[in-house]
Simulated scan of single mutants.
Amino acid sequence: MSSFFYGIEDLFVNYLFWPYDFFRFMDNWWTSNTVNWIFLIIGVIAMFYWLKQLKLFNDRGEEDKSITSHSYL
């Protein structure tokens, strides 16, 4: 079982987080955090897209909002 967790560690440390190792040794704060700013911008765009889709479904009235729509209510 320990080899399974060592495999997960190897995946994340040696492959998925290698860009952060490169940015760690840079002296410029803006260059170091470029990846984080890109992720933030992608997340904000995804959030606005999600909210737009929710509004479209709400405007079309496709959701059943009656109290009896779920058995636990």
Rank of each mutant, 00 (worst) to 15 (best):
W30S: 08
R60N: 02
E63K: 07
A46H: 03
T34A: 13
N28Y: 02
D27G: 15
I67S: 13
L56Q: 13
N14G: 01
A46P: 01
Y72M: 06
M47S: 08
V13A: 10
S69T: 13
Q53W: 08
D10C: 05
F12T: 06
W18V: 13
D64T: 00
F4G: 04
D10A: 12
S69W: 10
V13K: 14
L56E: 14
Y6T: 08
F22R: 12
L16C: 03
F23L: 10
L11Y: 12
F4Q: 09
W29N: 05
S32Q: 15
L40Y: 12
D10V: 02
M1S: 12
F48E: 06
W50P: 00
F22P: 00
M47H: 06
F57R: 15
G7F: 04
L51R: 09
R60H: 02
F4D: 11
L51G: 02
Y15M: 04
I42L: 15
L54W: 03
F5T: 05
F39N: 14
I67R: 15
L40F: 14
F22C: 07
G61F: 01
N58Y: 06
A46N: 06
N28W: 05
N58V: 00
F4H: 09
L16G: 02
D64L: 01
L51Y: 04
S3N: 08
E63T: 10
L11S: 04
Y72T: 04
G43I: 01
F22N: 09
K55Y: 09
N14L: 02
T34M: 12
Y20D: 11
D21F: 15
E9Y: 15
S66E: 03
N58D: 14
L16E: 05
D27H: 08
Y49N: 08
L40E: 06
K65P: 00
L73A: 12
W29C: 02
T34P: 00
Q53E: 15
I67V: 13
W29Q: 06
F25G: 14
L73R: 13
G61Q: 00
F25V: 08
S32F: 03
N33Y: 11
I42M: 15
Y72S: 07
M47L: 15
S32M: 11
F23W: 03
D27R: 09
I42D: 09
S2H: 07
I45K: 02
I41F: 14
F22D: 11
W50I: 03
D10L: 07
M1Y: 11
K52Y: 14
F48P: 00
F17H: 04
E62C: 04
A46V: 05
F12Q: 02
I42K: 11
I67K: 15
M1N: 07
S71N: 06
N36E: 14
F17K: 05
I42C: 13
S32E: 11
S32K: 15
E9L: 12
M47T: 10
